[in-house]
């Protein structure tokens, strides 16, 4: 058993490592996303490290605070946004590594935490004192309310299944999901249900990370980046980082819920490696899984559709996705009854 001090140290070091991972990998993922999107649009695109250059530039630029902004709120919103996004990452298993704060929170907590970056953006938008930011903040709220329900339904459906499969384990814990991958425990009906839920989560992702078609809160041609319109310099840089980390959070959540597989059990029979090497292999495999999820959920969707309007977003999430999520839930429940 670890002593209390050791545990605190472990958490502190883990937090640092996870934050560094989230930011660095988030930015690289952004670079890959931009590059792939550019190629899908028949152009060359920026160099892979462009997001790093962007952040570097933003951090040395002056942060302008508008005269009629509520400056303390305006300045603290980006920090809250980035911090809360990184906190979520502490509750999600990263490939072979268990979450830093394992045992302290579960999927329900993550659901709640996911709203905080959006709320910070809303606060920052309202504090900007610009009509564009106000419209953007309103849209962000509408968007948040719209995607929350299908997201929650999907997670509840999965947890319900976990509760049936392993009644002794906490149903909402992501570790439980890792121990019993959803595909292994469902029958054919449940399989269809799980696929539907996966699609729902993938479509929720661009809403969470504000990408076309659900980037209504930032829509640059309509409201000139909306909530971010008055932000500049360091503040904008922090929002930029938060956005990058959020993409990692969402995709690792999908990976944790649906693809918690590791390579090591599969390959261990053929090659023998020291434990630490297996960790590295699994971690790289995890990054690959994140990249694939991001490619589908972020890059591919955003290059192949137009931006929706607010009412269309609400209809898409409340009507189509909610119905889909409920169908997925029902299928999984029916599947459980058949057994």
């Amino acid at each position: 058993m670890l002593t209390e001090i050791e545990q605190i140290l472990y958490i502190i070091i883990g937090t640092f490592l996870v934050s560094a991972f989230g930011i660095l990998f988030g930015l690289s993922a952004k670079g890959i996303d931009r590059k792939l999107a550019a190629h899908m649009q028949w152009r060359v695109g920026p160099p892979l490290l462009q997001p790093f250059y962007d952040v570097k530039k933003l951090l040395v630029k002056e942060s302008v605070v508008p005269q009629n902004a509520v400056s303390w709120l305006f300045n603290s919103a980006p920090i809250v946004c980035l911090a809360s996004t990184i906190v979520i990452l502490l509750y999600i298993p990263l490939g072979p590594f268990n979450p830093v704060l394992q045992g302290y929170g579960d999927a329900i907590l993550i659901l709640y935490l996911l709203t905080i970056p959006s709320l910070a953006m809303v606060a920052g938008g309202f504090a900007s004192g610009s009509p564009f930011a106000t419209v953007g903040a309103q849209r962000e709220m509408v968007l948040m309310m719209a995607y929350e329900f299908p997201l929650a339904t999907a997670i509840v459906a999965l947890a319900w299944k976990m509760n049936i499969v392993a009644p002794s384990l906490p149903a909402f814990s992501l570790t439980t999901f890792a121990q019993h991958p959803i595909w292994d425990v469902v029958g054919p009906l449940g399989f269809i249900g799980a696929v539907i839920l996966l699609v729902v989560l993938i479509i929720v992702t661009p809403g969470e990370i504000a990408k076309v078609p659900f980037d209504i809160a930032e829509a640059e041609t309509e409201i000139a980046e909306g909530v971010l319109v008055e932000y500049s310099g360091r503040n904008l840089g922090l929002f930029y980082l938060a956005d990058a980390v959020k993409a990692v959070v969402l995709s690792s959540l999908i990976v944790a819920l649906f693809f918690p597989y590791n390579l090591s059990p599969l390959l261990a029979g053929y090659i023998s490696l020291p434990n630490i090497c297996w960790n590295v292999v699994d971690f790289l495999f995890f990054l690959l899984k994140i990249e694939i999820v991001l490619f589908v959920a972020m890059t591919f969707i955003r290059v192949s559709v137009a931006r929706f309007k607010v009412d269309q977003v609400v209809r898409a999430y409340w009507l189509y996705l909610t119905v889909a999520a409920i169908i997925g839930l029902v299928l999984i429940v029916l599947d459980g009854m058949a057994i």
């Binding site: 649009q41 028949w42 076309v212 980037d215 829509a219 290059v303 931006r307």
Partner: peptide, 16 residues
Amino acid sequence: AGHEIGFDTVFHYTWA
């Protein structure tokens, strides 16, 4: 027009 509705792929494609 493609760009105005947030469809940048169309924008780059038609301009190409």
